[in-house]
Structures are given as C-alpha cells and as structure tokens.
C-alpha cells in the first residue's frame, strides 16, 4: 500500500487513492478545501483549483518534486509521496489567488441568498480570502431561470463547479443539463430551459456549493440558522428516505439530504421526499441533527422567528429591490 506524508502526517492508503482522500482519512486542518470535487460523483473535481497542494517529493522511485501545484482531488498518491498543504506559505498564497478569482464575479448578495450559512464559498472566503475585493469592474450577470417549478437557477452566483452537470449525468436518468458558452460567460443550462425531468433532479440543489441552485419551495421562507434541523426518515420506494427536515416550530420548511462534514450528501433522495412531503406527519423524526459547532447554523437558539422581531415575509421584496434597483 502506498504511503503518503501530508504536512508531516503519514498514512498508508489503498492504491488509487487521491491526495485529497488521503488527507480526509487523516482529517483535521490539513484537509484541502474543495469546491468542485464530490466523492459521490465520478469524474468530478479538478476545476476550481482550491484544493491545490504542493508535492515536494513525487515518490520513492522518482523523488523529484512536481513543478507546479497539483489538484489534490485528481492526483493519485504514489508510494513515498510528500505533500505540503498548510505548511507551504507560497501554496497558501496561490490558494488565496484562486479564492480571489472565484469571488471576483460572485455577487455579494449573501444577505439575501438562501445558501448563506451553509455556503462553501462563504466558508472558503472567510478562511482564505481577502477582506476587500481588488476587482473594480462590472460583475457578470445572468437572468434567473426556473428549472421546472421546484428549482431556481441563479447563474450569477455560479462558480462553474460542474457538480450539477455530473448529477444530471450520473444520478438522473436522462441528461438535459450541461454547460453552454465558454470562458467567463459560460453558463449552466438545461438547453432552452427544458425542465430537469427526473425523480432525482432535486439533488442538484444539494450538490451546489453556492446559491446558484436553490429550492423554490424554500426560497425566502427563512434563514437557515433560524431553522431547526432534525433527522427523519420515511418509507420511500424510490430512494433511501433518510433526510434532514429543516423545521420552524412544527412546520417543515425544507427537506434535504443528509450531508457529512465535507458537505457531501450521504445518499441521494428523490424529488417526492424533497418537495412533496412538507408535513411533519409524513416523517418519523429521529432527533436533532448534529451540526458542526463552528457552523453558523449552530448559532440558532431554536427560538420562534416572531420572538426575533424579524419580518421574513418581506425577504422576497428586499431581494427584488436589490436586483432591480429601478
């Protein structure tokens, strides 16, 4: 079994393991961030370049260092490989550059974005980004598109991680989803706005690392940190039926798949569970969901929204105004 050393931590991993997977086996701070890699999706990863690491020793046989930083999610380990992630200042600087690139065309609409609080790009920019943007030009903008009556595509926020394209390719039975155009005007498209007509199309919402694909049944209902996540299950003929209910009082505001600590779903869920079953009586509730202590979602006090004196019914109006200043 090849032995790899990442930031001084050694581990033996099976043949064919990538550097990122090996780092996740070790765990802790040395795990490189990943915006496009998704372990449940084949051929994902390699696009966002946030997971780049420095290989200081190629392998036992060929100890030369690799000339460029490599994408850890797509590079398999070799026996004797030595990798630097957090211990290489020049690499952290390079990653900072990548984060800056991801952010230059990303709108700063977190206050009205449904993904806020569980957005990977937010976390990433807190950890690696600059406090102030050096980009002073107009950001790219797209019209919002409805993909069917349940999913909203807001391309302006997209970072082109291709995860949803892979879901459409691998999880849904017929692919009607891809990327059109190129360069910084490339966009996710379902080609002439054809609905993603599949029982598993809702999973594109879960894999989206940003707020580009959101659940129309949950849009502007609540901030995610005001809701109370609970594990629940039901007997579903199509999927595993194991989900997380995001509740407010006794109302089920949103249903999503269960995600692990890297934000990846444990099992895909079907659209019926996700969009149709919005009543607590449809579900067998298992108990509160464990949320990472550092997550903003844990900051909630499980209080009723009214007690916070925030009128969330105005959220959609605020959003409309922000996007159409006229």
């Amino acid at each position: 079994m090849p032995k790899v050393t990442i930031d001084g931590h050694s581990i033996e991993v099976p043949e064919g393991t990538t550097i990122l997977q090996a780092a996740r086996m070790i765990g802790g701070d040395i795990v490189p961030p990943a915006m496009c890699y998704y372990s449940k999706l084949k051929t994902s990863g390699g696009y966002c370049r946030t997971c780049i690491v420095k290989v200081t020793k190629g392998s036992e046989k060929d100890p030369r260092p690799m000339p460029k930083p490599v994408a850890s999610c797509r590079t398999t380990v070799m026996d004797g490989m030595e990798v630097q992630n957090t211990t290489a200042p020049d690499l952290l600087d390079a990653r900072k550059g990548v984060v800056e690139f991801l952010l230059i065309n990303h709108p700063l609409d977190c206050p009205i974005c449904d993904q806020a609080g569980e957005c990977h790009l937010q976390d990433l920019s807190y950890q690696h980004g600059l406090a102030k943007s050096r980009y002073e030009f107009k950001r790219r903008e797209f019209e919002k598109i409805d993909i069917g009556d349940k999913i909203k595509l807001h391309m302006t926020r997209c970072i082109l991680c291709y995860r949803c394209v892979k879901v459409a390719d691998q999880v849904c039975d017929s692919r009607v989803h891809g990327v059109i155009n190129r360069g910084d005007v490339a966009e996710i498209s379902t080609y002439i706005e054809k609905a993603l007509d599949s029982d598993f199309s809702g999973n594109v919402i879960d894999v989206c690392p940003v707020g580009a694909l959101t659940d129309r049944t949950f849009r502007f209902k609540s901030r995610v940190w005001f809701t109370k996540p609970v594990d629940a299950h039901r007997n579903c003929t199509k999927c595993c039926g194991k989900t997380v209910l995001w509740m407010s009082g006794d109302d089920v505001l949103r249903v999503s798949a269960r995600k692990d600590k890297y934000g990846e779903v444990e099992d895909w869920i079907c659209n019926e569970c996700r969009f149709e079953k919005k009543s607590a009586s449809d579900w067998t509730i298992e108990g509160p969901r464990h949320i990472d202590r550092t997550s903003v979602i844990s900051a909630n006090h499980y209080e009723k929204k009214k007690a916070l004196k925030i009128d969330v019914s105005n959220q959609s109006k605020i959003e409309e105004r922000a996007h159409n200043p006229k």
Binding site: Y47, R49, F101, L102, N105, I159, L160
Partner: peptide, 8 residues
C-alpha cells in the same frame, strides 16, 4: 471556462 484561474 472550466477552471477558475483562467476563466476569471
């Protein structure tokens, strides 16, 4: 438009 440094 595939990888971010070049695209942006």
């Amino acid at each position: 438009g595939q990888c971010s440094p070049c695209r942006e």
